[in-house]
Design a protein around this nucleic acid. Sequence first.
RNA 1: GGGCGCUUAGCUCAGUUGGUUCAGAGCACUUGGUUUACACCCAAGGGGUCGGGAGUUCGAAUCUCUCAGCGCCCA
Length: 878
Amino acid sequence: MELSSRYVAGEIEDKWYTHWKESGYFKSTPDDREPYSIVIPPPNVTGILHMGHMLNNTVQDVLARKARMDGKNVCWVPGTDHASIATEAKVVRWLREEKGLTKSAIGREKYMEYAWEWTHKYGGIILKQLQRLGASCDWDRTSFTMDEVRSKQVYRAFVDLYNRGKLYRDWRMVHWDPRARTVLSNEEVLYKEENTFLYHVKYHLVDDPSQSITIATTRPETILGDTAIAVHPEDARYKDLVGKLVKVPLIGREIPIIADDYVDREFGSGALKITPAHDANDYEIGKRHDLEVVDVITDDGHMSEAAEHFVGEEIMTARKHMIEYLESSEQLVRKEPLVHSVGRSERTDAVVEPRLSLQWYVKMDTLAKPALESVMSDEIEFFPKNQKNTYRHWMTNIRDWCISRQLWWGHRIPAYYYEDEVFVAETPEEALAAARKKTGIATLTMADLRQDEDVLDTWFSSWLWPFSVFDGMDEGGEIDYYYPTSVLVTAWDIIFLWVARMAMAGFEWKGEKPFKHVYFTGMVRDPLGRKMSKSLGNSPDALELLDNYGADGVRFGILSSSPAGGDLLFDEKLCEQGRNFCNKIWNALRLVKGWETSDQPSSDADKIAFAWIEEKLQTVIEGIESDFQEYRLSESLTKLYSFIWTDFCSWYLEMVKPAHGDTMSVETYNNTTALFSKLMQLLHPFMPFVTEEVWHQLSEKDGDCMMSSYPKKASLGSNVLEDVEYLKEIIAKVRDVRNKNGLKVRELLPLKMLKSARTQSLLSQKGWSDLLQSTAFLEGIQPIKEASKDVSDVAFVVGTDKFYITISKEVDVEEELKTVEADLEYQRGFVKSIEKKLSNERFVNNAPEAVVDKERKKLADGQKRIAMLEETLVRLKG
RNA sequence: GGGCGCUUAGCUCAGUUGGUUCAGAGCACUUGGUUUACACCCAAGGGGUCGGGAGUUCGAAUCUCUCAGCGCCCA
């Protein structure tokens, strides 16, 4: 069959993915092999594939495929996250735009129907996209944080914590998202510096309206909720005013001036308006001074009835109107530009409002302890290590976790109220039973109980993921085999949101860590260093990339420059390099397949070449093994790239390639295809498709590359490595001579070689000179006893040996002189620096003997080369 | 304010325990090359006082301190 000169990814990828899947290679059931389990960081159920997913899942796939080839029972569990707030935001928008409906109009039940409709329509697309990337997940195990099995465990976890006193409900100042109308956890608020204004506003004294006190605020609309003015107790400017009353602008409420040492005298005017309902610090001050709380903003970010003015207006509109009023009433002293940090909702980008509300919290102190210790002691090992510091910092300053959300899409909190009593239970029936028992009213029905309106934070389900995917809250069954999981691969930005909490849940319910290793990938950024985001439009279309470069090309691109932890500036050029690599491999296959064999014995030259490449391969295999130990995946891939491209294609294949029209021995052919196959196995975890295809094309085989054993390092004990490296240097020099003198690549040239112990020994080696001749396109190798005096001989030095190429053209003496002189200058500098080192007594006395010996050898070699170059110089100058 | 990290070639980045002719890769660039594996290619080449300074050491891109610039996380 004729092979195209280009590697075409599309069909090959489909073919092999289907084959692997149908062969059941991705499936896992417990057996007596060592388990290797990974749980996927579940992408949002209605999300689409972006660069971060591709990085994250490529890394997991590499680890999974490598472990599988190492003979482990690999179980990579895929799934999706219901992503409470993000999905709800999408569904709400869809209902509004497509159906003209609002949540409140249709009610909870109907809303949930729509939400499920949406989820079924768009859900899981991302998993299909992961398959295109080659992800070798056990798809039969696909889980969803809101499916039946997972939900059951979520409720159990909630009830369990409640019963053990680790859950409580309390009024607190929270971060409120007025767009999604829900509370947010600290981790869901992103702070950014924004340009705004600081308004200086006069409040007149009640007793003497000619007197006033000026405060500074960034939020004039909250003036309507002011219940005090605070100054620092030791601030001389305001000492006399403390205790007096002032009138709140517009609304006219009379409020006291109080003293509290929270006030920063340096900021603004040194007087602070206190709005307990709308600022966390003000709330604290309010509590200390027993101030009234006037909530002037509604849960959807409009002015409330309590504001009395601008009721129903949005915050920004009300602010504008308030400023206009202050200006017209001459109470606005001035406004100045201010850069300050504004918190926005991670999901909706709405400016977060501080708001007082009643929420459910998880007590974190006891949960955090084992989770912190296990990481600090490396029981859970982080790659890279430096993430431990960040982790410790957060875990030691941890605050209670607010887990209720005022949303509908999610796990509805299993708390049921009857009058002032709360009953927490996994099912309504149990709650009812408990309520009957507690109240002694046997006739209570479900209708008498009111279930909590809120749902749980999404992370309250994903923190159970490492065991919930195995339905593993109880012992026995699969969980005992697969838990703890082998490695978690995630980006560092969710170390608190997710990683830390999984560690806590693991110890809480399983009494053991959820994973042995955590590999943190970097964040994928655009070439300008910006985080990739939809709003910036700077994220390349993942599917388009797959179309353009093939899955292997994209995997290469994304892996080859993503060392653990470091952010990766993504550049399509890298995928191009990956695609080119596939093409290179493909063409090496075409070359090999085009070779004719015959029943001749292998030449000695071929034997040397093969011994060399095999020997060199061992170093690569060894390197890969140690790289995997430390999750240095990009280094491994780079090693393979350069070995396959340079050593295998550019050198080895050229060395054994038969001359035009010639045949090759069966042995060399078989050696070559076996070696090539081995390379495909080594590369397979990184680039599964092209390797599987080429592996099969090379020779008939039982089984597939994917399920073959990963090559192990062998001790071959051959010592040809140095000799061939030396030969390569000679060839490079010969090519240089051709280049500089405009000689054709294939024009046969005679080589003279000045006799030395080294050259003698090499020439006596069977096949060595043949290999040199054929690969460098030489016409004979002639050993000479003395330096050549022939003007048409171009000299060069390799190691400490001197060679000459006799060329048919006239030698450009000027050019040649330049080259030699430059080289000479470098060598002299080199020798000088070593002489300096060796003349330093302390070096000679203190450095290890081996190091000193090495320096002495370097010096002697350098001196020899100088002598040779000088000799050439003399000859050229004639 | 507290913490973490970065600075190496024009660009993006490797460089593990301080020691090999160790300053490296890819891209970009220069020169040359196309009768049959690959122009998504081949060969050769130019390009960096490893952010500045000080220190430890026989020896520093690598360890310590300091300064400068940049990034991120938390408050």
